[in-house]
């Protein structure tokens, strides 16, 4: 099949399935809090709704920046889909995309001119200083596998077994990274409810639709990356079950944990990254 067609189909799958997963996540949180919760299709319906609503622009917004940053947000996650599920490219590129994502989060907050957005913009810098070290544990995967290419990592696991058994601490650290990206996360300081919706506060209509589309794609992408890195070449059914389990676990944690303040969030994430990094090195050299 044509590469462009494969990319479009994969982006559509990631958007549709990602929004179902986020709806499921919301349902799990509601059930734990003894609420009926919305149907799991609700997140998808919300995303669609915003595409058809009137788009208003705040007077304080820096217009070219305000518009382009949302396009870049969408673009980087589509690029992640191309590098990940489509081409099975390098993890290092995914790390770079995540770094750009943190910059985009920062700029989305500052471009609207809203005080909540600006607060979120400052917090995005804080969270970048903790989430990027979390992602940096992929260096341990390089030490174990000898390659950053996802296809090489899959091949390695088909011979030596799943990496989660060899690098459990790295798996925990990357799970914390996924957790920090999930809605209502204890580490989600950039979208904390104390600053309304953080950098999304002043994005309405079409702009919000694109942000929700990006969120769905990014959730699918991060779940896919976690499962592929630590479990190898899975069947489609295993991917579906794995992604549902990740959504369930993050929903469970988020429903029972308050959002941490920025200092606590950053320090606990950096501590986890350090423990994961040093602990994995010790495990590699003294146990396996």
């Amino acid at each position: 099949m044509n590469l462009m067609a494969i990319i479009i189909i994969n982006v559509l799958i990631s958007f549709l399935f990602g929004s179902i997963l986020l709806g499921f996540h919301r349902k799990i949180m509601a059930r734990i809090q003894l609420r009926p919760g919305p149907p799991i299709i609700q997140y998808f319906l919300h995303s669609l709704k915003f595409f058809f609503k009137e788009t208003a622009f705040p007077k304080t917004a820096s217009m070219p920046f305000y518009l382009s940053i949302v396009c870049i947000l969408c673009g980087i996650w589509i690029a992640a889909i191309i590098i990940g599920p489509v081409l099975k490219g390098s993890l290092l590129l995914l790390f770079a995309i995540y770094a750009v994502y943190k910059i985009v989060e920062h700029n989305a907050g500052s471009s609207s001119g809203s005080p909540y957005g600006k607060m979120s913009c400052v917090r995005a810098v804080f969270s970048a200083s903790s989430e990027l070290p979390l992602f940096a544990v992929i260096a341990i995967i390089y030490l174990q596998v000898g390659s950053m290419n996802i296809s090489d990592i899959i091949n390695y696991q088909s011979i030596h077994g799943p990496l989660i058994l060899k690098l459990p601490l790295v798996a925990i650290v990357l799970f914390v990274l996924i957790l920090s990206k999930s809605p209502y996360s204890p580490f989600g300081i950039t979208k904390g409810k104390d600053i309304i919706s953080g950098y999304e506060t002043e994005h309405f209509g079409l702009m919000r639709g694109y942000i929700m589309l990006s969120d769905s794609i990014s959730w699918y992408m991060l779940s896919w990356m976690f499962l592929t890195i630590f479990f190898g070449n899975l069947s489609v059914l295993s991917y579906v079950v794995g992604m549902l389990v990740i959504a369930f676990l993050t929903g469970l944690i988020n429903a029972t944990t308050p959002i941490l303040n920025p200092n606590h969030s950053v320090m606990s994430q950096i501590s986890m990254a350090l423990i994961g990094l040093l602990g994995s090195l010790l495990l590699m050299f003294f146990v396996f």
Partner: peptide, 22 residues
């Protein structure tokens, strides 16, 4: 080719959910 089939499954699931909700 398989991707198209998975996309059809997801679309039918979404169509069913919307129909059920309405």
């Amino acid at each position: 080719m398989n991707e198209i089939i998975y996309l059809i499954y997801i679309l039918t699931f979404i169509a069913g959910s919307v129909a059920g909700l309405l």
